[in-house]
Each structure stands twice: as C-alpha cells, then as structure tokens.
Computed example of a mutant assay.
Amino acid sequence: MSVTTAIVSEDEADIRLDRWFRRHHPNLTQGALQKLCRTGQIRVDGGRVTASTRLAPGQTLRIPPIPLADRPAPPVLDPHLAREAERMVIYRDEHVIVLDKPSGLATQGGPGITRHVDMMLDAFREGDGDRPRLVHRIDRDTSGILLLARTPGVAAKLAAAFRGRDVRKTYWAVVVGRPSPASGVIDQPLAKVGAGAGALVIGASRDDEDAASARSEYELIEAAGRKLSWLALSPLTGRTHQLRVHCESLGTPILGDPKYGGKAAHMEGFPDRLHLHARALDLPHPAGGRLLVEAPLSPHMRETFRTLGFSPGETRPPKRTSR
C-alpha cells in the first residue's frame, strides 16, 4: 500500500474531515484518524489538519496507507426487483432520482414487510459508487413521488431543505364530504398513541406535552355534490399520517382510509384503497436552481376520478430551472 490522494467533491462541501473518512474508510477508527492528523500523515492541500477541519470542494486530501476491505461488496439484487425499481423512475440526473411509488409498496422495511423501496435501491448504484438514499418517506398506502439522493452529501443538502421548509409538497386526495370553508390552513397538533404497527396519530390539545405542532394547507379543487371532493393538500410540517388525520379533523376523511376514516371512508362502488397521492414536488436542486416533478395518478385513483367526472389534466414532464 502507498500514499494516495483524493479530491473533495462538490456534494461534500463543508463536511468535517472525520466524517469524510467515515464515508470513504469506515474501518478507520476516530482515534487512529486523530493520530494520523497529529503526525501530519493526513493533510489537506499540503497543510496539517485536525479531525474537525471543514473541507471545501476541489481540495486535495493526502491519504496514508489504510487497510483495505473497508467496504463490503454490494449485494446482488434480484433482477425482478431491479426491473420494478427502474419502472418507478420518473426523473434522474447525477444528483437525484425521483420515483413514482405505487400504492401498497412500503418505503422501508418493518414487521411483516417483505418488499419495500429501500431493498431495491442497489438497482441505482453505479459500479462501486454510493448506494442512493431515501430523503423522505411516504405511507405504504400512499402513491406518488419519492425522492432519492445519489450520494451522502446530496442527501444532507436535501434533508436540510426539507427541514428548512424550502420544499413544496402537493398531495391530491379524494375525501368523503365537502370541506367548509373551501380552502384554508389546518392547524391541529398531533400526538402518537401506542407503538408498532397498531400505533395511532390523534389530534391533541396545544398544552399536551406529547403533542407536536402540525399544519397543512388545503384547497377544494372539484366536488361531486357534497358526497366526495378532490382536495389539494400541502403539509407545512412533516408529521406521521399528518394529512390523513388533518382531513379527518375537517370532517372529510380520505376515501378508503382504513386507519382514520372509519365506516364513513368506505363507499360502495369505489375502490376500497387509500385515495391519497403525492402529486408534485418543488425543491431546490442540489446543483442550483429548482426541480419540479409530478407523478400521474395511481390506477385506483384514476378509476375514481373517471367515475366522478374529475379531470386531473396532463402530468407535466419534470422541469429543472436555473433559479
């Protein structure tokens, strides 16, 4: 083994030196890293550094001999899962991948879940590069847009954008009834009751110490009398089952919601599946500008829209703007 060099990439801007080594050489302990820094064996642009030094794109790292076998070989993905993953792609570039997740497919594993998006992500690994990472999650029964980051640095940037509310998420839902007023903001704190698969999220009072602030915008797009309505929903916070509970709190539960809708959410003549769809995502692109993507309605929601005479219009192709 010999001394090597590496260039800090754009998506690793401002990362600490020790975190960079954890990503690229996870077998190197923190103590060993600090010793290599103290003795000057690890350098950045020829200068001495500490484990907490922040890195900038384009800088050159001097890396002394480090034992190999620090990254396991990527698993071999079932070709059927790989093809299924590819069919979900609606946009990709060197930084992000956007999927159109079908209703019924879980985002991640859990008790009783044998198929999920996370187990398919090796389909998008390029060579021995990074495995893409989920940036956010949507419910198993919710269809639509799911965002992946190709590298850890991109994942960190996008996670910060989601936390900073610089991402606009639009969901479509068919709900039972007709909300009044026709648009507004639902400001209803939420609390989780129970644990595991049986846990429920409920509306809570503001002085409940276990409650979390939760706010959602809603707008009535079209209605079939007072029986069923098509709503556009935008969560302003990111709580579990937020939109489902907020719609129920309006007195208009989401059609087919098995957990929060009760008997009112199950109507003869309509698919008995959750009618909630992650329609659009408008976000700052990690390389600059913004990215807008839309996902077409899931098959069961298309069927319901046809039955009710709702007209969703065309799904616009992905669009990336420079500002």
Rank of each mutant, 00 (worst) to 15 (best):
L36S: 08
G58M: 09
L274N: 07
R83K: 11
A69E: 14
D11P: 01
V89Q: 14
G46M: 07
I66K: 09
R137P: 04
G40N: 07
R163I: 03
S322K: 03
T307F: 05
R206W: 07
H80N: 10
D139E: 05
T170M: 00
I138D: 00
R290F: 00
P284S: 04
G127L: 01
P299F: 10
R273A: 12
L292E: 00
D272Q: 13
F310N: 02
A224E: 13
P317A: 12
T170E: 03
Q108K: 03
P132R: 02
L281M: 10
L228G: 14
E268I: 10
D78E: 12
T315M: 07
V98F: 08
Q242V: 01
K259F: 07
P318A: 03
A224P: 01
P284R: 02
W230K: 03
L255H: 10
L77D: 08
G129N: 08
E209V: 04
I97K: 06
L68I: 08
I97N: 04
G289R: 00
P271E: 03
A32C: 12
V293L: 02
Y91F: 15
M120N: 08
F21P: 03
H277F: 08
P258N: 01
V8T: 12
E84F: 11
R306M: 04
R323S: 12
